[in-house]
């Protein structure tokens, strides 16, 4: 996350313990938005590849970058301390979706690297489900 990296540089490197339940929710919302973006990017690049409308190195680069983005989003989500029990509950519900998304991104990158068509399609299905779940959470958190 580019602006994130810059902010980290600016604000002495703390993704930081969140102060209250409201801002934890806000941070969770941002996690879903950013992660859905990474997932959608990988999906779009892969679908273009499958229909012969892309270039192989570009697809693999875009998917790897999306995977990297996904893991750093997941990492900062996990490292954030929930301020109360409700937030803790929110974390455990959302954590499944976040993990599913990052796992699917990794699976996609591996399948693409191996040229495993069936694996790619399966990973795409998982990504689509993960994105739907993330978008659902966005609406609930907004």
């Amino acid at each position: 996350m580019v602006p994130g990296a810059l902010a980290v540089a600016l604000l002495t490197g703390c993704a930081g313990p969140t102060l209250d339940a409201g801002s934890y929710r806000q941070a969770a919302l941002h996690t879903t938005i950013d992660l859905a973006s990474a997932v959608a990017t990988a999906e779009l690049a892969t679908r273009l590849e499958l229909t012969g409308r892309s270039l192989a190195p570009v697809t693999s680069e875009v998917v790897s970058a999306a995977e990297d983005d996904g893991s750093s989003i997941a990492e900062s989500f996990t490292s954030r301390q929930p301020p109360d029990e409700d937030s803790r509950a929110l974390f455990s519900q959302l954590d499944d979706v976040v993990t599913a998304a990052t796992d699917a991104l990794t699976a996609l990158r591996m399948a693409l690297g191996l040229g495993n068509q069936a694996g790619v399609r399966q990973a795409l299905d998982e990504l689509q489900r993960a994105r739907a779940a993330l978008v659902g959470w966005q609406e609930r958190l907004q």
């Binding site: 938005i33 950013d34 859905a36 973006s37 959608a40 570009v58 875009v62 970058a65």
Partner: peptide, 8 residues
Amino acid sequence: GIQVNHVG
């Protein structure tokens, strides 16, 4: 909902 973080 894609945000641009990379040139690609």
